[in-house]
Design a protein around this nucleic acid. Sequence first.
DNA 1: TTGAAAGCGCTAACAA
DNA 2: TTGTTAGCGCTTTCAA
Lengths: 352, 352
Amino acid sequence: MAQWMDSIAVNKPQPITIKEVAEEAGVSQMTVSRVLNKQKLVKESTRLKVEAAIAALNYRPNLMARSLAGGKSKLIGLAYYNPSPSYLSALLVSALKRCRDLGHHLVIEDLSDIEGDLDTSLIVKRLSSIRLNGLILAPPLSNNLTLLGLLKDMGIPVVALSFRDEESVHSSVAFDDVAAAFEMTELLIAKGHRRIGFIRGPVEHPSSLQRQAGFEKALEKHGIPVDQSLMFQGDFTFVSGLELASKMLDTASPPTAVFASNDDMAAGISAGAQRRGLKIPSELSIVGFDDTAIAAAIWPRLTTVRQPIAEMAQNAVDIISEITSRTWNGEQLHVTIDAIEIVERESLTAPK
Amino acid sequence: MAQWMDSIAVNKPQPITIKEVAEEAGVSQMTVSRVLNKQKLVKESTRLKVEAAIAALNYRPNLMARSLAGGKSKLIGLAYYNPSPSYLSALLVSALKRCRDLGHHLVIEDLSDIEGDLDTSLIVKRLSSIRLNGLILAPPLSNNLTLLGLLKDMGIPVVALSFRDEESVHSSVAFDDVAAAFEMTELLIAKGHRRIGFIRGPVEHPSSLQRQAGFEKALEKHGIPVDQSLMFQGDFTFVSGLELASKMLDTASPPTAVFASNDDMAAGISAGAQRRGLKIPSELSIVGFDDTAIAAAIWPRLTTVRQPIAEMAQNAVDIISEITSRTWNGEQLHVTIDAIEIVERESLTAPK
DNA sequence: TTGAAAGCGCTAACAA
DNA sequence: TTGTTAGCGCTTTCAA
């Protein structure tokens, strides 16, 4: 019995507080707080004393208290809605790494599949309890004006991924989808393809439309008419690619190449085509978009556009970190990453 | 200028506090707090009044304040170290969903690749600042005794995935890897395979050893000697599978089938074998373990063991939720999921 | 069944 | 450059 109570007692140790650090260092709590927050107005010798005390006691500030008193919680949110698994994975890994380096924590909010359509009030409910320093919104949440409005009213700084609103009420990190899709299409044409299938992503994603625009722009430039019978609508999932493969290959004159708007769908097309006995790439070339892990995990590996997801995530974290800092001037920040890179692998060759 | 200041002011709206709810309802803060925490000692009529006030004001409790005053933060941690992408993805999706349903938030801690080896002190540093209700540890963190000890000293309740320590100082959710691997191996043997390659996962993962044990047990049962030249060491990544494919197929008498300890490695083997021109499954059967997304995303699709990752994650969240509740009796909880299911797809057939 | 008081650990605003 | 005071929004403890 006594033992049992012991174990309960041990369960909740009293952590060191700022007060104890102050005593140990022989200064006031405020001075410790200043050292903690790296403020300038501390004499070097005092700072060293305080730092020594912190190290000696192995003190860790309580984020909750900090947040209550000050406002900064060191908590960054990342919200998404039905992302493709490989996009999400790339996003997470990079955001997490950056948070770790900057001493922040990432709180994930998966808003997928909430009773059919997206329920913005539920999101607001969840987000208003927890005090986030900022929120990273993945597409298609990043262009949901209702949500953006609510978040603004709540005073949560937002960084939108792959969407920039014209009024600039929130920050953004974007990529030139039009140019990237244009370049990829030119590569397909250069290889000799003329009948090119295009798998569009969900229309809620601005990127879907932009990638399509880039595709069509390249066709036009080379005098190839846009053939509506070669345009298909997917939803960024592997399964949608798989299903569209049949639909596309059942037509009277199938394309010699397919450009899917993301890697997951491209992988689906690849699996579907191979299931029907087609040789990739000799009988059908396939290219994707994103260069996520799945692009190199299937055989033949996908030729694809490298979307700088990692850089985008890192920039998003940096922006929130910047906004949270004392030196922020109130202006929203915008970053556009414009290095376009095509990763050539085995899934693309000249048509027979 | 005025406009600029306006926008800053709007940026930080004053959220409703418990005090205002109390006034609105004509009761004390304490009564509101009791209603919030679903305590029994509140008269029905008062409770209704308070709930009406909460709804009217659209009040949301401040988690930070709650945590400071009480201890419960509604924050659950999920930590991992170099997981396979598809395992991580499955884990996250399920844990996130359960957290959402239970009103918790998930804080992700990616401990991968921290300066070579795992730096437990850094983890402790990060975790002692944020006040987590509990921490879910994915393998191989879940069997790191050093880490487990530190966490216990910090008073953070832990749920270990795929590992149960004998002293039961923390909770756990596990799966019978031995039996599952045994069953899969029997299927391979039933199909007629005798020379079966085995790709073991990293030895830091108890599951790796258990899967190997199940594999060898099944061989023994059927009188097939364990051939060391058919045993290979992977690290759960796609790339390790890819590399081992060459190594394995370059041997004098290659196996007719391969059992990889997870799907990512199986996919790597598949890609590597196909790159060498091998037909899957006619010239080489491949089976995996986990039934993660990648198993169905490659062609031919993988026959694999379904590891109930989703159920395990959900159980882990439930356990922390339970431990956090006022009614917890102090005992660690343990769950073992024993439904073993083999998912048969195209990657396995009888040998030629 | 309800309320009053105290304080969780920290920082903002002011004073020295 | 440093310290003092007053809370942040909530729950605990104790009293009514």
